[in-house]
Design a protein around this nucleic acid. Structure first.
Lengths: 186, 186
DNA sequence: TACGCTAGAGAACGATCGTTCTCGATGTCA
DNA sequence: TGACATCGAGAACGATCGTTCTCTAGCGTA
């Protein structure tokens, strides 16, 4: 066999590819970014890209899935450094506030993907719904620990803050939502 | 002059065109819908379309603007049939719940447009921001009438409910947000 | 009636899309 | 060393995009 590609090389290429795809898709939207641009950003031959993901749609789904793992992992890491259940719930909004203030923040990648592709790609729709369900359940578990029944309001406040900060470019909704959550937790 | 087009014909064509564009864009996203499809849905020659709007982007902006007038008008009509300030704020969520339950509901057209075009079209971005500001200010005025300072939380709850109902397809967030608003108004 | 203009229908244009194919280079095994 | 499998680079493909152009039909005016 001449020059086969190692499993490790594949994993590494996959990561590089997903990095490029994620930042381009997030920045400009999915349909606005062509495969050629992803290719040049990733520095990978098109052939290799299509050997890793058969279609652009698969690449989008894989990118959303990896982003979900990282995004929710980072959130959990931040939140669970606190011991007090109430502090944990409020920490969610602090974490969101930091995220909103990051340069290039442009709202929620899943909400954006849903608006653009939700009606034409069942696979993307599934991925978006499963991310939102997971985020919801994460919040629900933390809220329940406080003994408060305000699970849904806290989730809706978080979603509202993400969307509003994404559109206005102002991270203030994180603090506003945090204050409201504080009041709702009682 | 041979067969010139009356101002009234233009207005009527404009409406038919915006109707077709609005439903197609809302249903499938902007980039997913081509001008030819809009043409056949509107039953208008391409030439007329481009005499009404010079570019697709202008058509999108005009469609968002007209939708904003209608959407906020319908909300205000519903809400302002109530006299009690508190009832008015809660009525916002009832109105949202009815909207969520409509067939074909697919979230907020402005949030969707923002995710898809916000980073590539300044005109669309402006339109989205101005709609959100107007909706925010509408809610703010109603909340202030109750004497409660909970302006931002009520707005964030509404936004969170719209986004969540749009993704899950379940209108329940309207009631959940309504209950939370009720608690926050005190 | 003949002319001038505009509207309609849709072909055409150049660009770009996602995806596949070609082809020469490269390195491995018999 | 020679045969061959696989790779990278990017041309090529067919489809589709937004937009413009062509051409004919038909009306209003002289």
């Amino acid at each position: 066999m001449p020059t086969p590609i190692s499993a490790e090389q594949r994993r590494q290429d996959r990561d590089v590819l997903l990095d490029a795809a994620e930042s381009l898709f997030y920045e400009r939207g999915v349909r606005a970014v062509g495969m050629d641009e992803i290719r040049s950003a990733a520095g990978l031959p098109l052939k290799r890209i299509y050997s890793l993901f058969a279609t652009k749609e698969e690449l989008v789904v894989a990118m959303l899935r990896r982003r979900d793992r990282r995004w929710r992992g980072s959130l959990a890491d931040y939140v669970e450094r606190f011991d007090d259940p109430r502090a944990r719930v409020l920490a969610v909004f602090d974490w969101l506030g930091r995220w909103f203030a990051e340069p290039g923040f442009r709202g929620c990648a899943w909400i954006n993907a849903h608006g653009e592709l939700g009606s034409s790609s069942p696979a993307v729709l599934d991925e978006v719904r499963s991310h939102k369900r997971a985020f919801h359940d994460q919040i629900a578990a933390w809220v329940r620990e406080t003994g408060s029944p305000a699970v849904e309001p806290v989730f809706l406040l978080a979603e509202g803050a993400v969307v509003t900060a994404g559109i206005t470019g102002d991270p203030a909704p994180a603090e506003e939502a945090r204050a409201a959550a504080e009041a709702l937790l009682g």
